[in-house]
């Protein structure tokens, strides 16, 4: 194999000599290097462009609302006011606290479900199974990861939401909370269930990577000390893979925060601030995550201030996701450094 490649390289060098000689080559090479740099730089510039662009589009919202945009609620009412406002008196003040909380609670809820299940499955795949079972588990996970979010939304809408409204909600509960919000099947719980399905394959895949990256010597040393296989996994392998798993969890969180279509189909479409004081009804609160807000409220996008508000949702979303990406990066570099030291 190696010899073959060297041969082909040698052949190419000869061709180069015959046709072009040596003079043009360095110029060509530096041009080529420059082109490659340009393409690489374009991708990197893109993120700055996206950020500036949507920030520009929503600037009026941020300058009018200030910090209140993330500390006050009332988005639903403000959209209504903005929609019905006369053209010369537009509403620029928006408070998106309930959207942000809705985003965080659905994603966090999904992580609470998906991380243990995902890590558990990853352990089974890496350490406890072999042969056909391992392959089967791996390909099922890959399939689950590849199912488009709109299909999850469809399943949620046709299966999960009717199940919640039919079996978990009672008229008494609905009556009791009607002054705050209406309990329909569309709820934080439905969002969490659907989101869990969506991010579990991601957690599995990245945990598998992290567990596989744990050096064999660790396991061998532990097993040589007479520690059982399972205890080796829980006491040695998982702690060693911890940072890698954490990076995966953060990536999954980013996916959950950014999911728009599936959540807009199941999570309730009403920007209610969930309150823990409602007890377990907390889970049935209809919530509107930021990404879904862009989808759901786009029917009123003809009003300039509402358009700007939706771009503002995009800005907040982008900041949250960028923060998570940078966190992952930091964790990764910490892991690398530690592995380098050890």
């Amino acid at each position: 194999m190696e010899k073959l490649l060297i041969d082909s390289a040698a052949k190419h060098v000869n061709v180069n000599k015959n046709k072009k000689g040596f003079k043009i080559s360095p110029l060509f090479d530096s041009l080529w290097e420059f082109m490659i740099f340009l393409l690489a730089a374009m991708g990197a510039l893109l993120i700055i462009m996206i950020f500036l662009f949507i920030l520009l589009k929503s600037w009026k919202i941020f300058s009018a609302s200030g910090l209140q945009i993330i500390t006050t609620t009332g988005f639903e009412e403000q959209i209504r006011q903005a929609y019905n406002a006369p053209a010369d008196l537009p509403v620029w003040k928006f408070g998106m606290l309930s959207l942000i909380v809705g985003t965080i609670t659905t994603t966090l809820g999904a992580l609470i479900v998906a991380v243990p299940a995902g890590v558990g499955t990853a352990v089974i795949i890496c350490e406890m199974s072999s042969g056909w079972l391992k392959r089967f588990l791996e390909s099922s996970t890959r399939l689950l990861a590849a199912i488009p979010s709109v299909i999850y939304g469809l399943v949620g809408l046709m299966l999960v939401v009717p199940f919640i409204s039919g079996n978990l909600l009672t008229v008494e509960m609905q009556m009791k909370y009607l002054e705050y919000f209406q309990l329909t099947g569309n709820s934080m719980l439905a969002g969490i269930i659907i989101l869990s399905f969506m991010i579990v394959p991601m957690v599995i895949a990245l945990s598998v990577d992290a567990i596989n990256a744990v050096p064999k010597e660790y396991r061998e040393a532990s097993l040589a000390l007479g520690i059982t296989k399972w205890r080796t996994i829980t006491l040695v392998v998982i702690p060693a893979a911890k940072s890698g798993i954490l990076a995966g969890v953060i990536l999954a969180a980013g996916r959950g925060i950014g999911e728009a279509i599936a959540l807009s189909m199941v999570s309730g479409a009403s920007a209610v601030l969930p309150s823990l004081s409602h007890g377990f009804v907390f889970l049935f609160t209809p919530v509107l995550p930021l990404a879904s807000a862009i989808v759901n409220k786009s029917q009123a996008i003809s009003i300039p201030s509402i358009e700007a508000a939706l771009f503002a949702c995009g800005v907040i979303l982008l900041v949250m996701c960028s923060f998570l990406s940078i966190c992952t990066k930091i964790i990764e570099s910490v892991v690398r450094r530690r592995q380098g030291l050890e």
């Binding site: 009607l178 029917q299 009123a300």
Partner: peptide
């Protein structure tokens, strides 16, 4: 004797 739950549409619909 049962409560009425009103379903509506998004603003802009």
């Amino acid at each position: 004797n049962a409560p009425i739950f009103v379903q509506t549409r998004e603003e802009g619909s």
